[in-house]
Design a protein around this nucleic acid. Structure first.
Lengths: 192, 192
DNA sequence: CCCCAGAAGCAAATATCTGTGCTTACGATG
DNA sequence: CATCGTAAGCACAGATATTTGCTTCTGGGG
């Protein structure tokens, strides 16, 4: 009596629904053939009633933001390597590896899509960005605590984060060999 | 008899409609309060019947692509300064100036939004990118013709284009002073 | 073991978007 | 100035997306 001869469809717990919906978003963004992202499609792919999605998240933006936050935290281990250079390199390596997969690129695109579309006072967008850059700020804080002098966040943005995002967005594969090292060397090499 | 006592609404020529619709897209992306971008909203803002938009462009993606192409070409003069460095600097200065305005940032975001959402063979996305980078390739070609040795497109992507795009997307203002020079110097300074 | 709060599923109503047939104005051409 | 092709506008007809009222299940505390 493990399953009751597959009755229409079993009801799942909130956490299962949440995970299934998140995964459906990634699947739709990465895998298929150009359908556009909307809540009915997501719900169907997740095998969840669309009303559940509407009631829980309310809008596609909110769903994307929730998914992105969850996944970014889950996928960045961020263990302390003992040096600024090591931490940055680990971050770059993980990031480059991730954007080699369609799912990884989809996650980055979701970050962009989840940015508040409006916001005349663009502070909100900048805050959104800060939240996404939490891990980089932690690397900087640890470096400072060690007595190292990390580059300002803006420079890390320009030389490390930006190439990673833009390549993911435009689907430009990073060079095969030594790319994370190249970016980190450029960043730490000359400190203008 | 210049205007007939403002009858419901005068019909405009195709070119006027096109321009009005393009402008409406930029307005909706930059200015207002978070409404999402869709064809009825664009048509209403442009003062155009929505069927005209559907018939001419067919989809939001196509409209965005058309608008982006038109505006990017119009807004990049690309006069030959006589040197690679001068051309890159001019490009960077124009780009940085443009993303200081909400409309400029909106245009960049539209570039991202107009990227094909699907495309398992991501070649199409890369081609889309190439088309957008036409001006940069022209700068490289001119430099080669002069006997200069421009950096590969990939490096220009990482060090010049990427910071520009990411800042526009996340709404991070560039540093007030000397930012274009900083980026170009970094790019041309060390040639790893 | 029973009860309750919270959330999922279902069905149906509403709102919104997308597409079609037709009419009418614009502007180019002769 | 007359004619004609193109594209805009209008009204209406699907097709989709969003929301609501209600029922039913799940899991945690008494």
């Amino acid at each position: 009596m493990t399953d009751k001869q597959a009755p229409a469809r079993v009801r799942r717990s909130p956490e299962q629904v949440r995970e299934a919906v998140h995964q459906a978003v990634i699947d739709l963004l990465s895998d298929p053939d150009g359908e556009d992202l909307n809540i009915p499609a997501i719900a169907q792919r997740a095998g969840v009633n669309h009303t559940s999605v509407y009631r829980r998240w309310g809008s596609l933006d909110a769903l994307l933001a929730d998914m992105v936050t969850t996944r970014l935290e889950r996928d960045s281990p961020l263990n302390d390597t003992g040096s600024l250079r090591g931490d940055l390199l680990a971050w770059a390596q993980a990031s480059v590896a991730s954007i080699r997969t369609p799912q990884g690129r989809a996650l980055v695109r979701a970050v962009v899509l989840s940015m508040p579309n409006s916001t005349q006072a663009q502070d909100e967008r900048a805050q959104h960005f800060r939240r996404r850059m939490r891990s980089i700020e932690q690397i900087r804080e640890r470096a400072t605590a060690r007595g190292e002098d990390p580059p300002p966040l803006e420079q890390i943005l320009d030389q490390l984060i930006a190439p990673f995002y833009v390549r993911a967005i435009f689907g430009i594969d990073p060079p095969d060999h030594g790319y994370p090292e190249l970016l980190v060397d450029r960043l730490l090499g000359d400190r203008n």
